[in-house]
Computed example of a mutant assay.
Amino acid sequence: MINKQDLNVKKKHGFLNYLKKNLIKTTKNLSQKIINLFKRKNIVNEELFNKLKETLIISDIDIHTTNKIINLTKNYAQKNKIQNSCKLYDYIKKEMLKILLSVEVPLIIKNKKPFIILVIGINGVGKTTTIGKLAYYFYKQKKSVLLASGDTFRAGAYEQLSVWSKRSHSILLEKNKKKDSSAIIFDAISYSKKKKIDILIADTSGRLHNNIMLMEELKKITRVIKKNNNMVIDEVMLVLDANIGQNSINQLKIFHDSVGITGVTITKIDGTAKGGVIFSLANKFNIPIRFLGSGEKITNLHLFNAKNFINAIL
């Protein structure tokens, strides 16, 4: 008979293997080069740190975060009079882990109906797919979920969400003829309150070709939700594509300045060589990273775990 502890260990190793498999390109960029520098007996000097700097930047870690890691490592080496690079590998790994631990904050569903999650992000990042995976994630926790099709501009957005609704055992109201996304989400909130739905996940438009229009639309949605008996958005979740690297920093800044991001989900981690940008996002914004996602399988959405992530790439 398998006990609960054994199951947890199996689950933990399963997720670690999943990360290792999906982060193989990031690992190639980062891990192998760091191992070559710090697992072999190299002299600790300026040339070594320059090579480390190049490695971190190539892995899509921004210059500010890169300098932070290097300066901490330099100071540690000088303070402890370390001349053998092998003795610095564990320290670098520990400092990189610290950066990620600051954003390892799972999404806690409050005992409030409905718990409102507003999902935002530009077109093409996997926003609708993430919504479907989120709905299934909560369905497995025995929560009732309603999806609101707030993307009224992208052709086929409702139909795509309808497919994910069926797959995730969630509710999707009939297609609303209203073109105003805030009005659609307002109606979904009213329905959720009436039917005592646990969680409402609202889709939004992702037309970043016109930042001003999109941001004003998102601001309007937040205002309208507050007008529905002073309801509040419990989670403003930004979906980012891991493959866009440093551009995700700009996206997070734009959206956060406009509507205030409370959590981030990073998609398409499978096959990306730019997974290092997660360190930049964590260090620069300190906004919780909730989930990592990959592929089209409805189960391929996992709680972000800093230690597993570090062990997978280093």
Rank of each mutant, 00 (worst) to 15 (best):
A242D: 00
L303M: 10
D257Y: 08
S168A: 15
I108H: 12
K142R: 14
R167S: 12
E95R: 12
F38V: 05
G263T: 03
R154C: 11
K143R: 14
T66C: 14
I116V: 11
V264T: 04
G150K: 02
K39F: 10
K68R: 12
I298E: 02
W164M: 07
I34R: 08
N176D: 15
N250F: 04
L72D: 14
F186E: 03
T27P: 00
D203R: 03
Y136H: 13
I298T: 01
V264R: 00
V239W: 01
K143H: 10
K10P: 02
L107K: 06
H302G: 08
F49I: 06
L118T: 00
I171M: 12
I254W: 08
K297Q: 05
V145Y: 12
F38G: 09
S59P: 05
L208R: 05
H169M: 08
N45K: 00
S258M: 03
L301G: 10
I287Y: 04
L238T: 01
A148T: 10
Q160F: 00
F186K: 05
I171F: 13
N80Y: 11
H64F: 15
R40A: 09
E46N: 15
N36Y: 13
I298A: 05
K140F: 02
L107T: 07
Y137P: 11
K11A: 12
G271I: 11
I244V: 14
K79P: 10
S181M: 00
N111P: 07
K12F: 15
G150W: 04
I57G: 02
S181I: 00
Q5E: 15
K12L: 14
N311D: 15
H169I: 02
D187Y: 07
V224L: 02
L281Y: 09
E54S: 11
S59W: 10
F186R: 02
I57K: 02
Y139L: 04
T65D: 11
S258F: 08
T55L: 03
V9M: 12
I269P: 05
Q83A: 12
K194V: 01
I189G: 05
L101I: 14
I35N: 15
G276I: 08
R154K: 14
S294I: 01
Y191K: 09
T152Q: 13
R207D: 06
A282M: 05
I249V: 10
W164I: 04
M231A: 15
E46Q: 15
E95W: 04
S162L: 13
T272N: 01
K284P: 09
S190E: 12
Y191H: 11
G271D: 02
N17T: 10
H256M: 00
E216T: 00
A157I: 02
L303D: 14
I109C: 05
K53W: 02
M96P: 09
N42E: 10
I261P: 02
L7H: 09
I199D: 01
G132D: 08
